[in-house]
Simulated assay, not measured.
Amino acid sequence: MPFFKENMRARRVITRSGRGIRGKFPSRKLQKQVHWESPLERDAVLQFEMHPLIESYQEQPSEETYYNEFGNACICYPDFLLRLIDGSQVLIEVKRKVDLSRTKIKRKLELIALRFAQQGRTYRILSEDQIRREPLHTNLEELWKATKAVRIDTSVHSAVNGLNNHRLYTTAELSVLLGDEQMVLALIARGQLRTNLELQLTPASKVWTALNKEAGDGAFLL
């Protein structure tokens, strides 16, 4: 059985030889600091933070056992555990393009994936190309900046509640109704509004309320 404690890391965040860039992400979704071990992990956290179907996530969630080619037990630590709003969970490994090109690392990941599949657990590798694909990555950065640039007060919440839940708006329209474009972006970041983040955000982008189920949930591919 995996070693897992809610909201606790299974190991300290480290980098090879104690070097490299690492830091903390101030998560609004979790109301805590999330540790990351590389800029790529930080960018993955940004996806988890903004994804409307991810309820919560945990870095370094568990100590896991898998078996190598000789049947020997080995230890690994998935980078993240995602908890989705439908109750399912996904273990995530974040990997750079250069790492995925190495035979030894690829084989290790295959063996880890095999072990989790045998346990009936979902395990996914997020590559550099997936995490930093455009225009999604730029859009998410803009949303995050907007959350720090504006203050959403009760009057804004009231205005959002007064929107038609059965129609599509444009960013430009909502900028007028809600104050400015940064406010619209901040509300998308917080999940109160939805848009297609796989398309470049412009004043003409279609935006809808979270209650407009016909328009979709605004989720993007992980």
Score class of each variant (00 low, 15 high):
R194I: 12
L187W: 10
L197G: 12
S205M: 09
L193S: 07
L199Y: 08
S205H: 08
A189D: 10
L187M: 11
G179K: 07
S205F: 08
T202Q: 13
G191P: 07
N196D: 14
L177D: 00
A204D: 15
L201V: 13
K206S: 09
G179P: 02
L187P: 03
D180F: 03
G179F: 03
L201T: 05
P203M: 11
L185E: 01
E198C: 04
Q182M: 10
P203K: 07
E181L: 07
L177E: 01
G179Y: 02
T195R: 06
L185K: 15
R190I: 09
A186I: 01
A189E: 06
T202M: 06
V184P: 01
A204N: 09
I188V: 15
M183P: 02
L187F: 12
S205K: 13
K206E: 00
L197D: 07
G191S: 11
T195W: 03
Q192I: 02
L201C: 06
L177T: 04
G191A: 10
L185I: 09
S205L: 05
L177H: 00
T202G: 07
R190H: 07
Q192L: 14
L199K: 15
D180A: 05
A204S: 15
R194A: 12
K206M: 03
L187N: 01
P203E: 07
T195E: 05
G191T: 10
T195L: 11
Q200W: 01
L201G: 00
V184S: 05
G191C: 13
T202I: 03
Q200M: 13
L199E: 15
G179L: 07
K206T: 01
I188W: 02
T202C: 03
L185D: 01
N196R: 15
I188M: 14
L185G: 02
R190S: 15
L178E: 06
L201K: 00
Q192A: 01
Q200L: 14
S205V: 09
A189I: 06
R194N: 09
